[in-house]
Computed example of a mutant assay.
Amino acid sequence: MNNIEGIAEPEFEPVVRAFAATANERGGAALSIRVDGRTVVDVWHGNAAEDPALAWTEATPAVIFSGTKGLVAVLVARLVEAGALELDAPVMRYWPEFAAAGKGRITVRELMSHRAGLAALREDVDLDTALDWSSMVERLAAEEPLWEPGSAYGYHALTYGWLVGELVRRVTGVGVGQFFQEEVATPLAADAWIGIPAARQPQVARLVRGRSMEVPPPGGMPALDEEEARWMGRTMTLGAAFPADLVVPGAGFDDPRVHMAEVPGAGGIGTARALATIWSSTVRPTDGVRLLGDEIVTDMVRVQSEGEPVWWLPGPYPRWGAGFMIPSERRPFLSASSFGHDGAGGQVTFADQRHGVGFAYVTNLIELHSDDRGDSIVRALGDVLKGT
């Protein structure tokens, strides 16, 4: 089927057909789905780089961009369940330096819900600084919020990772990448990392520009005032650390240095199989592991941020709980009981409590608008599950 490789249970063939319809000769992708812990779809196609000689395989890991935020939220949930962290406690209880510049009342829940006012830094940061954990967390701890914390939300595209990751480090005593391996990846034998080992880095799929990046979006770009545009740009670049153009060969999230560093806002890497396994284990026992209980999931998927953000963008808008992206018109997922996180360029990863689903679609063919690939596959999955 369009050079699709892998396996699928017969009743899920419509989902594989939807996946095949997304195939493009310029890049590759993988899809893995578990239902009640068992693998029902595990397929892949295409190339791991623009060079057609580099085929995507079952072991190809990909950058998942903001899908990493969902993995970090899983870590926080486990700490809350263990009694090591309270969502409604002030961040300063665990990270005293964070109280500087009027931030003493910001809670962990607000920090995780993009409500802390720290979506960007006022001073430019270069890549070397962005990859220096201590430098980043010291800057963020000293920073004055850009808006009144708790009064509104603005997507913390990159800073979320250092803010919540440092909270994890303060509570556990180890870096977020190590804690992820210990608590999640290793118990599940999942090929996923926040900072991939050097020996595995050459296997990472290289980013490829999709056709939507070559043409303006339908209806043109929204009109933003100069100040809003500047701040929104800084949330994605930190001023000088990452290129404004998401796909630059060998730069930004295609840079091996970034792959191997801890950038937990957007730098996670994993195979579709690993990510589906992780998300499955948040709602059902999977390979003998259940990562989260129902009670903590219920608490952390309560709506915290929705509607128009502090820097205006046209809707439809996403919604967040505490760290987890939850269903919205912008990202419907599978049902009202879904939670997870998408990622730039087309990545879709989530769990669904009602159906017992762990889902991961990853791709190196980066599209920025008019991209229905992930949603089309999820809709096909929904149609199949209605009949089971």
Rank of each mutant, 00 (worst) to 15 (best):
G150E: 02
V283C: 04
I4S: 01
A120M: 09
V43F: 00
V76G: 00
R115K: 15
G321I: 08
F12W: 07
F19D: 00
A62K: 10
S212W: 10
S337F: 11
D352E: 15
V301E: 05
M92L: 13
P222V: 08
V297F: 02
T22K: 03
R109Q: 06
G27F: 00
A49M: 05
T277F: 01
V125M: 04
R78D: 05
L79G: 06
G321D: 05
E262F: 03
N3H: 12
R34M: 09
A251E: 14
G210C: 09
T68Y: 06
A351G: 11
E81F: 13
P52M: 06
E138W: 09
G28H: 04
A261M: 11
A20H: 01
E143Y: 03
K386T: 13
A89Q: 06
T60C: 11
A223M: 10
T172V: 10
G102F: 09
A261P: 10
V204Q: 05
A261F: 09
A142F: 06
A101W: 12
A21G: 08
M92P: 01
I194W: 02
A142G: 09
F179K: 00
M112A: 06
M325N: 05
A84T: 13
I326Q: 11
G46I: 01
E50Y: 13
P256D: 15
R211C: 10
T107N: 04
G307K: 12
P96K: 14
S338L: 12
Q201C: 15
Y317L: 10
W95R: 03
L146S: 14
F98V: 03
N47T: 09
R206C: 12
E182K: 10
E5I: 06
M92A: 15
L85K: 08
L292Y: 07
G345S: 09
P314S: 04
A141I: 01
P14F: 10
E227M: 06
V176A: 03
L131R: 05
V357I: 15
A223F: 08
F339H: 05
P309K: 14
A48W: 03
G343V: 13
W147Q: 12
V289N: 00
P309C: 15
I106E: 02
G177E: 04
V384P: 02
E143K: 03
V247L: 15
G382K: 02
H355C: 08
D352C: 11
R93I: 09
V125E: 01
